[in-house]
Structure formats: C-alpha cells, structure tokens
C-alpha cells in the first residue's frame, strides 16, 4: 500500500475517533437486531430446564415466577406449571453452597403433593467423573440401584440424606460430599416449597 497518512496528533486522534465511532455505530445496529433472538434464546433455555422437571403445562411458568431470599444472599425461585389453570407441578431453582467445589444449582420439579417428579443439575463445579455423576445418578433406571433414586420420593416422608448419615439415599461412589450437597439442595427446595404451599394459594 503506497501512501501513509502523516502521524500528526490531530490525524491520529481523528482517525482513531472515526474508527471507534463507525465500529460502535455498526455494533449498536447489530445489537438492536440481535436483541430479540438473544432474549428468546435465554427464555427458551429457562423453559427447557423447567420442562425437563415438571409434568406437561400450558402456562408460562417464567411469567408466574416468585422467589424467596436466602441467608446466603441468593434466591430460591419457584416456577409454577399449570394446565388449564390447575397446578400440575412446580419447578424450584435451588442451590447449596456445600458442594465439593462450591455452589451447586439444581432445578427440582415437585408434584403438588411434594413428591419429586424430576430434577436437572443446572450449574456446578464438581469434579468431572465423580461429582458430575449427580445428573444421572439419582434417577438411574437400573433396578439394582433403586436406593440411589430420588424420583417419586417425597422429602416430607423420606429421609433425603446419604445412607452414611442414616438417610434413605445411596451416595455416588467416591463422591459423598457432592452427593450430600446435592441432596441438601433438594431438601432446601422442598422446605421452602412446603413453606410456600402452607403460606398461600400459590
């Protein structure tokens, strides 16, 4: 490329300013264009997590969301799932701070009577190959491992802790801490859920 512009101070500032201005304008435009798809993608992701844990519904649980503040500063979120205005289940976004590597966030789906319908692990930093087994472990279909499964159990009647601590659930082999934490998150969800159920007509 032949001629180069002189590096006078004014030229430098002007050019850099113009480049940044054009770039920002282009980005601003693209941002407006992609705002909707991005919001839609976020909503779809949330709904997917809810759909996975509660029975079929026809409302928008995200719209009906309510929450409870916990002492740690985080919120437990409740997503009621309704079919034809009748409550068929509630997805509860719960957490524990006692995972092996910190926070574990779980979405638990409760039937109206408090029985666990399904769960989905949302976020965690547990050890791959050990704690990460949380997702399939507590819902495995092998009949020999039925003591690990929490689906269909009601935390109000079952002791939802690891058998090592006298509970009803068998922990993940070699990942007791993650298992304990996971169950604690589910128990917390149930406790807060029962409080809500007793408290009102939600």
């Amino acid at each position: 490329m032949a001629d180069k512009k002189e590096s006078t101070f004014i030229n430098m500032v002007l050019v850099l300013f113009i480049v940044t201005l054009v770039a920002s304008a282009a980005l601003g435009g693209l941002y407006e264009l992609t705002k909707e798809p991005i919001a839609a993608a976020k909503l779809a992701k949330k709904l997917k997590a809810i759909k996975a844990v509660v029975p079929e519904f026809d409302n928008n649980p995200s719209d009906d969301m309510y929450s409870v503040d916990m002492p740690s500063g985080d919120k437990i979120e409740f997503y009621p799932a309704k079919k034809g205005n009748e409550l068929v289940g509630t997805a509860v976004k719960t957490f524990t701070t006692n995972g092996f590597s910190g926070y574990i966030w779980v979405m638990v789906g409760f039937k109206p009577d408090g029985t666990i319908n399904n769960y989905s692990v949302l976020e965690h930093k547990e050890t791959p190959g050990l704690g990460t087994k949380m997702e399939p472990w507590f819902k495995q279909s092998d009949p020999a491992k039925a003591s690990c499964v929490i689906l269909g159990k009601n935390p109000g009647t079952s002791n939802l802790t690891v058998s090592k601590d006298g509970g009803d659930v068998d922990a993940i082999t070699a990942a007791t801490i993650s298992s304990r934490a996971f169950l604690e998150a589910v128990q917390t969800a149930y406790n807060e859920y029962s409080k809500q159920m007793k408290g009102g007509t939600k």
Binding site: T20, A23, S24, L27, G28, L30, Y31
Partner: peptide, 12 residues
C-alpha cells in the same frame, strides 16, 4: 445500556 461495547472499551 451499551453492554455490547465491553470488548472494544476494555481492550482500548
């Protein structure tokens, strides 16, 4: 509300 300018502003 111009969060999309993060990359440009930070790197500058």
């Amino acid at each position: 509300g111009i969060g999309f300018m993060q990359t440009i502003s930070f790197i500058l």
